[in-house]
């Protein structure tokens, strides 16, 4: 679980208009280049996060029971408390910093991309020019000097907030009550339990999966444990079979060499 005084961000989907000011502000503050993309028939752009895009708005759109729906969610690193990227990293380059923020030490990263494969949010990416991985830093440079993250600062509708984890959790609960009172029965808070609790919380109007958010996540260490268990059983079973087949003929033909 994140600590009460950790840095945190709250995204309130009920206030988001999908204007993407956060997306632009992130590019500007972090000096990230634009990407050349093609129109795929959606306002969602770019199609995924990358080493050059650390935050983007995810658009979920369609028609359900004759009603058009058009929902927006924030797509960026969640700053997990049990972060898959940190646990998968063989050098400790991507790690927890003070206040629970997860950042990459680009002088230590060897560019093995194991973190890229591990992250359940597809939020950390390899920069081929630099040979290291990059992702959202929760504006560590800004928050550690008492400033708001660039995305939060730029948000014109009050959909993004930042502060301590305790403050953001309280605010999220307050919004949840208001939304429930206003008739949004499915409203919920995302990020309280995922990956040990994330430092970015979402207030959502519908079930997380309707926004394309992963649910029922397993932490990296659990996955690693079940991987080794499976490999151990495989080694025993297949090894036993191999030894048996190798020994067979020795029994059959006796002393022959």
């Amino acid at each position: 679980m994140p600590k009460a005084n950790d840095h945190a961000i709250l995204f309130d989907a009920s206030h988001c208009t999908g204007c993407r000011a956060c997306q632009v502000a992130c590019k500007q503050w972090n000096d990230l280049p634009a990407e050349a993309t093609v129109n795929t028939g959606s306002y969602e752009n770019p199609p995924s996060l990358s080493a050059d895009t650390w935050i983007r708005m995810k658009f979920t759109e369609g028609v359900q029971q004759g009603q058009v729906f058009w929902d927006f969610t924030r797509d960026a690193c969640m700053h997990c408390t049990s972060a898959a990227c940190v646990e998968a990293c063989p050098t400790g380059a991507v790690n927890y910093r003070e206040g629970g923020v997860v950042t990459v030490d680009d002088n230590w990263c060897i560019g093995c991309r194991n973190c890229v494969q591990a992250c359940p949010y597809d939020a950390i990416h390899f920069n081929e020019q630099k040979g290291v991985v990059e992702k959202c830093t929760l504006c560590y440079d800004r928050v550690s000097s008492g400033l708001e993250p660039a995305c939060v600062k730029a948000c014109p509708t009050g959909a993004l907030h930042s502060g301590t984890y305790a403050e953001m959790k309280d605010l999220a609960n307050k919004r949840l009550q208001e939304l429930k009172a206003a008739g949004y029965k499915e409203a919920n808070i995302y990020g309280l339990n995922e990956m040990g609790g994330t430092h970015v919380l979402y207030v959502l109007l519908k079930h997380p999966s309707t926004y394309g958010l992963p649910v029922g996540l397993t932490t990296e260490s659990k996955k690693v444990a079940s991987g080794w268990l499976s490999a151990g059983i495989a080694a025993a079973v297949l090894g036993f079979a191999g030894v048996k087949w190798l020994a067979d003929r020795r029994n059959e033909v006796g002393g022959e060499s």
């Binding site: 646990e87 400790g92 230590w108 560019g111």
Partner: peptide, 25 residues
Amino acid sequence: DLGQPARFWHLLVGIHPVSVMWLGS
């Protein structure tokens, strides 16, 4: 294959047993 091949020794100076990549190397 590493993005920073000259830094491969960073693998050998710490202990990260949960990382399958570390244990593998």
